[in-house]
């Protein structure tokens, strides 16, 4: 675990989170009493988000990052582990706690073309969350929110409908809508992937500045490692439900230790005709989460596959602050499978 030496309570903490989807077998299965393995969409994920910290969760489609997000905001219940908001587990939340939580944890969705109500003007979109959370409405507050997301002057935008805004402007309105209730945590689900490159950097910088100015924490979810360095302090790389590597952003970009992180970075195109980057060595796509075997989930595509990959790797500290779940990075002195024995700083969770 990335222990917080200050011993402050993290704003948001996820501890050994599991989200398994059980599957109903067919008639014959029930007849013979056999049952299907559950789908492990999120499997033993832990992280602790401190105040004013931005962490990224990076992975391909199907890796479980969206399920993780849905579980964190309580849209679906976890099947194991727990989520703590300022030290209090979501499982013990009262109705009032939930209401408080829903105000303090705001989401920015991937697609601003769909996440804004097409019949709401910008003003109405911003008033809506205030109404829901019984916050007094004032024109000043609305102007301030638009000002913060650099939609200037606010008067120009207040009465526009989403269709009268460009993609970047829509996403700015989504961000204004999120920050207007003064949350502590922002969950951003691929907030720039639908935008043109000319606007991506602007939105990322805006998010980064806002977290700084307002003291926000943010979980930033994306499939794209090339844009995270502007915004994330720490990166978790996720593959088929598990976090395979966690490290500070520039460290993971510069010296990825997990073969999957390495493959993700190697596949990023380089805007330079002289670069001679070799194409990816990986074949195929991730296996279906329905057909997972024991051991490391990446083993069938891994260029470094070894016999012991059939047992699940522990997450060990390969470098200062860098935690990697791969057999390449620790000795097999303890070849007994599943020994969660003393590995200094290593996190088996």
């Amino acid at each position: 675990m990335e222990v917080n030496p200050m011993n402050e309570t993290p704003v948001l903490e996820i501890r050994n989170l599991e989200k398994y989807f059980t599957r109903k077998g067919g008639f014959l299965d029930s007849l013979f009493g056999s049952s299907k393995e559950p789908i492990r969409a999120v499997d033993d994920v832990s992280l602790a988000l401190d105040q004013n910290e931005v962490q990224g969760i990076i992975g391909e489609s199907g890796c479980g990052k969206s399920t993780l997000l849905k579980t964190v905001i309580g849209l679906t219940d976890p099947t194991g582990g727990d989520i703590f908001y300022k030290g209090k587990p979501l499982s013990e939340f009262s109705k009032r706690d939930w209401k408080e939580f829903r105000k303090n944890v705001q989401i920015i969705f991937q697609n601003p073309f769909e996440s804004l109500d097409p019949k709401f003007t910008v003003r109405e979109s911003l008033i809506e969350p205030l109404k829901i959370h019984d916050i007094e409405y004032s024109e000043e507050r609305i102007h301030d929110a638009l000002d913060r997301v650099q939609l200037n002057p606010p008067q120009k935008y207040l009465d526009r409908l989403p269709k009268q805004l460009s993609g970047g402007e829509k996403q700015r309105v989504s961000i204004a809508r999120a920050i207007i209730v003064e949350p502590d945590v922002i969950l951003a689900d691929e907030p720039v992937s639908m935008l043109d490159v000319s606007t991506q950097a602007a939105i990322l910088r805006l998010l980064s500045d806002l977290t700084e100015e307002l003291g926000l924490s943010m979980l930033y979810i994306s499939h794209d490692l090339s844009t995270v360095s502007d915004i994330c302090d720490l990166i978790h790389v996720m593959y088929l439900g598990r976090v395979v590597e966690t490290a500070p952003t520039n460290q993971i970009l510069g010296q990825p230790r997990h073969p999957y992180s390495q493959a993700l970075i190697d596949a990023i195109p380089i805007p330079d005709p002289f670069s001679d980057r070799p194409r990816t060595a990986l074949d195929g796509s991730p296996p279906s989460p329905e057909e997972l075997e024991a051991g490391c989930r990446f083993k069938d595509r891994c260029p470094e596959r070894m016999p012991r990959c059939d047992t699940a790797p522990k997450k060990v500290e390969t470098d200062p602050d860098q935690f990697t779940a791969c057999h390449l990075h620790y000795e097999e002195s303890d070849s007994r499978p599943n020994t969660e024995a003393a590995l200094q700083g290593g996190n088996t969770q």
């Binding site: 460009s166 993609g167 490159v197 490692l225 360095s229 510069g254």
Partner: peptide
């Protein structure tokens, strides 16, 4: 400006160019 708006993974600390408007 477009060339400067693209991230290059070899230089993660580049300050990317923003092209205002559309």
């Amino acid at each position: 400006l477009l060339q400067r708006a693209f991230p290059d993974i070899r230089y993660p600390d580049r300050k990317l160019e923003i092209i205002e408007g559309h």
